[in-house]
Design a protein around this nucleic acid. Sequence first.
RNA 1: GCGCCCGUAGCUCAGUGGAUAGAGCAGUGCCCUCCUAAGGCAUGUGCGGAGGUUCGACUCCUCUCGGGUGCGCCA
Length: 566
Amino acid sequence: MIDFRDEVVYLLKDQIEFLSEDEIKLLVEVPPSYDMGDYAFPTFRLAKEQKKSPNIIAEELAGRFSGNDNFEKVESAGPYVNFFINKQKLIETVLNEIINKNNEYGSSNIGMGKTVIVEFSSPNIAKPFHIGHIRTTVIGNSLKKIYKFLGYNTISINHLGDYGTQFGMLISAYKKWGDKEIIESNPIQELLKLYVRFNTEADENPALKDEARYWFKELENKNPEAIELWQWIRDISLKEFNRVYNLLNIEFDSFAGESFYSDKMPRVIKELEEKELMQESNGAQIVDLEPYSMPPALIQKSDGSTLYTTRDIAAAIYRKEQYNFYKNIYVVASQQNLHFKSWIKVVELMGYDWAEDCIHVPFGMVSLEDGTLSTRKGRVVFLEDVLKKAIESTKEIIDERHPDLENKEEIAKQVGIGAVIFQELFNQRIKDYVFNWDRTLSFEGETGPYVQYTHARASSLLEKGEFDMNDKVQYSLLDNEEEINICRLLYNFPGVILDSCAKNEPYFITRHIVEIAKEFNKYYNSTSIIVEDEEIKKARLSLVYATKIVIKTGLALLGIEAPNKM
RNA sequence: GCGCCCGUAGCUCAGUGGAUAGAGCAGUGCCCUCCUAAGGCAUGUGCGGAGGUUCGACUCCUCUCGGGUGCGCCA
């Protein structure tokens, strides 16, 4: 596809001797509104070098361009030289490209031969899967899809919290008060009860903690009884989690969690010792990070057991050896910024230059109106409940407005889940937010259902108008403002995906498909698509088709489905 | 005490150092004899504050105020 921006740079570089091509490229920008053109070149830099007024330079510069095939006009406006794309060329270029590439439009092979690991979701076994887990789950899933679309080989890893002293507690608690049948009837709730009870009683009776430590030690020592219980708890928890993953339509390539690395820790400790990075401090083994203005990284507790810093280091080394990753991405809450900074620094100090390829992708906190989420204090909203409620609300709307719709259940699921995911991916990751039912269950305005609805509208038009993508289309019949604006947005879509990937921010895509939907709905309301004139109809439907493809692709990259009817 | 993050309209948020700072929601008023009204149109006196860098700052720097979060044996 023609890169109009590059074309602007080519045109400019022949006329400007004071700046290099790269400098020009950096200066070329997009004007605030379309009536100022599609690209603009500000002349302030030149003005400084040439000691002339920017306005005069812009005027002179603009005068040296006559329109060409790609640009219908080049004008100066104050200190700017504005480039106006040849609209017909744009429309033809972008629609041809989309119709040819179809679902591949926007994809790329820049990632060919490179492996990107995305670690995300990572719930703790035997703990509820609550609203606090949604961000990592949904952002990680989307990032994986984005990388894949750009040609990377992707590995999604669910780094389950399936190890640690907490398991010693669970095993002790189960042995004291547990009942297999009761637990299997409602695993997470019952295991949580045991966990809470154990903690409460341990406050009164410290001996319990020793017992927990004993059982964790036994787990590490591969005591068959401990292993069996651990395996059982892990299995039933995972079964619970999978219900949510199924609702969200999310799959993982690996569930190698913390336990997976338990036997890979000694090697790390040995290596740290050999490289003389470890030192003792108050009985514990640490890596001093004082020179980097960070608190020390705690590698080994005074009782000899390891911590999650050690596990993360072991995991990173394992992943490098196993997958030879190009990027190793961690979608983990921003509270752990320091933790990641710290262990990645240790990996760097170990002499691994790939430390810089380990990337923490942080996100802000979810809280509830009455405070921070706290499972133990009962302040918790289960993710499954949120998803189910969203589906129910959607179902009610369908029953009310489109009672004859086929596959109501399936569509209610796609739209309800879509609404939740979309909202999650609508803003910058880093923003904190307070969970709110009304907002989660609102389906109007800039929401998932709005975009899905637009897609369904487009689908319906294509069906009614009997669009055939093999028809020859006279693109010159598309020339009104809305048609061109839609094409501009469709044209920018591939670039938006690249930005999303570069910043690990799915919301660029979310925002962009909302823009497309808005522009399309405007068009829909102002223009009849299915008209008497066959040629006009075909031309308009081709635009509808391209819009549908891009919306569908965009939603897919977010992990959201696009029903044809709703 | 120190570090990191956030602060834009009543609310929730966009805004690669550039041209008049934009959406959605909420409110009000319109638009279904017409391709899906989960839609469209109209209506908007806001960048926490103070300095600085720059031809130009919501954007970069310093300080300050408000909120969040983190800081050796949890993850």
